[in-house]
Computed example of a mutant assay.
Amino acid sequence: MTAIASTITTPTLRAIDRVNPVAKLAAALVLAAVLVLTIDWVSAAVALGCELVLFLFVGLSPRIFFSRTALVWIAAPATGLTTLLYGKAAGAEYWSFGLIQITDGSIGLAIATTLRVLAIGLPAVVLFITVDPTDLADGLAQVVRLPARFVLGGLAGLRLVGLFIEDWRALELARRARGIADGHVLRRLAGQAFALLVLSIRRGSKLATAMEARGFGAPTPRTWARPSPFGLREWALIALGLGIALLAAGVSIATGSWNFVLA
């Protein structure tokens, strides 16, 4: 019975779930650091193609993948559209109206910008879908060796973010019950936002006092309840991110498409 219960209650971990969050952060940063150096569609397309292939082995269902990355899929075309309308004019001009100019240069820049946003944003979201804030804090403190006080303070603040929505709903219901939520929309939102700010400051002050009383701010070295291993699996993920970035940069340079942003 114990074996059956443990099988039912314990979810099966995917390979990406077992990777240290610090390695996921490092892989996303390495990939982004190379892609932001250039604005060309070749490097972004190569990186995005490699990423889409790897996403098939992450183990996410299509519903979870597209629901979690929906903002990226919306932001990328929006950024590309803005670049298309107001980007650098070069080459043949197809349409213009006031400040808007659609030319060969703006079209190429819009395509490159859209692909680059997807190539940078999608892996960052996918890698952090399964990251637990506590695991990330353990990794930052034990692997990166960040100050424990900074890490624990950030973790405590991040844990409170989830309460904002509940507080906002409670404030809305309370103000409606008191009859002060029927005024102008902007005035109502401003007053409710200020009330939420005051409530958040009070809660943060109480949390800081409680943590200080429990010794979280002590200058002595801390011990950690859960180890944060960093081994071959983590280095392989970082190497994979670096490999994709170097491949994208190499293909872009070889085809003459590399467009260094600082040049």
Score class of each variant (00 low, 15 high):
Leu247Met: 07
Gly139Cys: 06
Trp41Lys: 01
Val151Trp: 11
Pro221Glu: 04
Thr255Asn: 09
Arg233His: 12
Leu242Val: 11
Leu52Cys: 01
Val143Lys: 12
Ala110Leu: 04
Thr83Asn: 14
Leu99Lys: 10
Phe57Ala: 14
Ser43Met: 09
Ala225Gln: 10
Ile180Ala: 11
Phe260Arg: 08
Gly98Val: 05
Val117Gln: 05
Ala239Asn: 07
Gly59Leu: 08
Arg214Trp: 03
Lys24Val: 06
Ala44Pro: 12
Leu122Lys: 00
Phe57Leu: 13
Ala45Glu: 03
Lys88Glu: 14
Trp224Ile: 04
Gly49Trp: 05
Pro221Asn: 09
Gly256Lys: 08
Gly250His: 05
Thr220Gly: 10
Leu155Ala: 06
Leu122Arg: 00
Ser106Trp: 02
Leu115Trp: 04
Arg145Val: 01
Ile180Met: 06
Pro221Thr: 09
Gly157His: 04
Lys206Val: 14
Cys50Pro: 01
Ala148Gly: 14
Pro229Asn: 06
Thr2Gln: 15
Thr9Phe: 15
Leu197Gly: 09
Gly183Pro: 05
Leu118Arg: 00
Gly250Asp: 05
Gly139Leu: 08
Ala177Leu: 08
Leu242Lys: 01
Ser228Asp: 03
Ser43Lys: 07
Ala181His: 11
Phe55Cys: 08
Leu13Arg: 14
Ala32Glu: 02
Asp182Arg: 13
Leu186Asn: 05
Ala44Thr: 05
Leu122Met: 00
Phe194His: 14
Pro133Asn: 10
Leu115Tyr: 03
Val125Ala: 07
Phe57Tyr: 10
Ala112Phe: 04
Val22Asn: 10
Ile16Trp: 00
Arg169Phe: 09
Gly191His: 08
Leu163His: 13
Leu71Met: 15
Arg178Gln: 04
Arg145Cys: 02
Gly154Ile: 10
Val151Thr: 11
Ile165Gln: 13
Pro227Asn: 02
Ala90Trp: 07
Ile100Gly: 05
Phe230Pro: 12
Ala181Met: 11
Val126Lys: 00
Leu37Val: 03
Trp95Gly: 04
Phe66Trp: 11
Leu199His: 14
Arg187Val: 13
Leu237Glu: 06
Phe260Pro: 00
Phe66Ile: 07
Arg226Thr: 14
Glu212Gln: 08
Ala225Met: 12
Ser6Phe: 15
Thr82Ile: 14
Leu109Thr: 04
Leu84Thr: 02
Ala47Arg: 09
Ala112Gly: 04
Ala112Glu: 02
Tyr94Glu: 07
